[in-house]
Simulated assay, not measured.
Amino acid sequence: MGAPQGDSIKAEDRPSKGLQREAAKTGEREAPKTKEATKAREGAEQTPEAKPGVIDRSRFDAELKDPRVMAAFAGRLRSEVGSQGPEAHLAFAEKVMNRAMARNQTLMQALSGSYYPTHHPGRSDNPKFIAAITKAWKEGTDTTLGATGNASGKVGFGKAGGHYDKQGHWVSPNQTVRINGERFGYEQVDINRGWLKKYEQLKQPRV
């Protein structure tokens, strides 16, 4: 692998998505259904306002040239946001690479573990998923404003709180963007480890 082996985040830093989803059902009212557009940017609470840029992700060149890593990446993308359209595919690809950079992990480390409902990412050869990963990798896209986590329902990003917006969508602290049914944001553990400063250093203005 091209990227260095990094220090993995401990499981207790964030419960699995399955456990969080189960906990969110208790004592919480459901968001009212609306016919509003499903994509809406939501301001991150108590985090700096970020502007999208271009992120150099060449550190992943060696890993993503390995067909096994690309297939695993596409497999995880399929299980997380596969049915939510190309914008969500691109956003998820960005998030995984941002997460790996924030935690000094390999892509396989960022794609595996208790953060996800299943430990192993699986595999896929779907060209749409591979195209989204390749775009985020080679073009350095930043549609999520440096997000390191993704969530659905009322699952958050490691910080308590949240509210419904005027359209009836749930907004969690540290959230940066909503794309269809998926929300993206900064995991609190990554903020604590200095990701926002690192993100600004990695980001180049868009031409």
Rank of each mutant, 00 (worst) to 15 (best):
L202C: 04
L77H: 06
A160M: 06
A44Q: 09
E200V: 12
T144P: 00
Q5S: 15
T134P: 00
M108V: 11
K39M: 09
H169Q: 11
V54N: 09
A11N: 08
K17I: 13
P173M: 02
A71Y: 11
E30H: 13
R41D: 12
M108K: 02
E36K: 11
H119N: 10
D7V: 12
E22G: 11
N126M: 12
E187R: 07
I191P: 02
L111W: 10
A91W: 02
A71R: 06
E182M: 14
N192G: 11
K135R: 15
W170C: 02
Q167W: 09
A3K: 12
Q188Y: 04
E42T: 14
A31N: 15
Q201L: 10
R123G: 11
Y115T: 12
V155W: 04
F60H: 07
M101W: 03
Q105Y: 10
P4L: 04
M108L: 13
R68H: 13
K138Y: 02
R193I: 03
E187K: 11
A136K: 07
G181Y: 03
R76N: 03
N98V: 00
K33E: 15
T106D: 13
V54S: 13
E182Q: 10
D13W: 05
D13A: 00
A40S: 14
Q167F: 07
M70H: 01
G18Q: 09
N150P: 00
S58F: 14
P127Q: 15
D66P: 08
L196W: 04
E63F: 05
V171K: 01
K95H: 14
R21V: 08
E80L: 08
T118S: 13
T47A: 15
G43L: 15
K138H: 08
H163Q: 02
A100S: 10
N98T: 12
R76Q: 10
E87N: 06
P173V: 01
G6C: 01
D56R: 09
V81W: 00
V171Y: 01
P52N: 08
A110M: 03
S112I: 10
G161I: 05
I133E: 13
G122L: 09
A100I: 01
F92R: 02
G18S: 15
T38V: 08
A23I: 04
P86I: 06
R123T: 13
T144H: 03
E182R: 10
G75I: 08
G113W: 00
T141I: 10
A136S: 13
S16C: 11
I130E: 04
K33C: 06
Y116H: 13
V96D: 04
G18I: 08
G43A: 15
K39Y: 02
P86L: 01
Q109T: 01
N174W: 03
F184D: 03
S16A: 12
P32F: 07
N126K: 12
A72N: 08
D165R: 02
V155E: 02
E12I: 10
S124V: 12
A44R: 14
G75P: 00
G27R: 15
A151M: 04
A160L: 03
A151R: 00
E22I: 09
D142H: 11
P15Q: 15
T176M: 01
G168P: 06
G146Q: 12
K25N: 14
S152T: 07
R68T: 09
E45F: 12
T144D: 03
P48C: 11
T176C: 06
A93K: 00
A151L: 08
G6Y: 00
Q109H: 05
K135T: 10
A71C: 14
T144V: 11
A24L: 13
